[in-house]
């Protein structure tokens, strides 16, 4: 078992269950020792592949997926998932290769700003995306970009 195996298993379970697997669940699924999976989770976080909730081994983000509800729910034929931001929300249908609807809203006024992906194309995406933080500093605080 290498870190790629753990990453792929994590993503597959996240998509199938609607939440990421705990270390114990991933260890059972991979038939691997929990300590090895825990170490892999830490290495994947250090490599900026996943984000763990502070002080825990609980997956918070496995981009583009968020383990906690966000203002970016995405409906797809595979289920409803949460993106970490509008980029990640759009990344969910991009990753799955399917249609999707992001029930976004304007961060300023809260008005609905639904964005639909159909057959690989964006429909009624009239709004804007705004990055507050330059790319080189995203991982200073990945929860605020």
């Amino acid at each position: 078992m290498n870190d790629s195996d753990v990453r792929v298993h994590l993503m597959e379970r996240f998509l199938a269950d609607g939440r990421p697997p705990s270390v114990a669940e991933a260890a059972a699924g991979l038939d691997a020792p929990e300590d090895d999976v825990a170490a892999a989770y830490r290495r994947l976080q250090d490599a900026h592949v996943i984000v763990l909730a502070p002080g825990t081994l609980d997956v918070w983000m496995a981009n583009p997926l968020s383990a906690v509800p966000t203002p970016f729910p995405v409906e797809t034929e595979h289920g409803t998932f949460y993106g970490n931001c509008i980029w990640d929300a759009l990344g969910i249908p991009a990753m799955l290769g399917c249609d999707g609807t992001v029930a976004a809203s304007c961060a300023d006024c809260g008005d609905p700003l639904p964005v639909r992906v159909r057959n690989g194309e964006l429909r009624n995406g009239d709004g804007l995306a705004h990055f507050a933080v330059p790319a080189a500093r995203w991982w200073d605080n990945i929860g605020h970009t």
């Binding site: 790629s4 195996d5 792929v8 993503m11 597959e12 981009n63 583009p64 509008i86 980029w87 990640d88 929300a89 759009l90 990344g91 969910i92 991009a94 990753m95 799955l96 290769g97 964005v115 992906v117 690989g120 964006l122 995406g125 009239d126 709004g127 804007l128 995306a129 705004h130 990055f131 507050a132 933080v133 330059p134």
Partner: peptide, 23 residues
């Protein structure tokens, strides 16, 4: 920061995430 049309964000999302499930 910087802003750009959602159409461009979609292209960014496609380019960045299309292969994320590839082992």
């Amino acid at each position: 920061g910087t802003s750009f049309p959602l159409e461009q964000a979609w292209r960014l999302a496609q380019a960045w995430y299309h292969d994320r499930l590839d082992p």
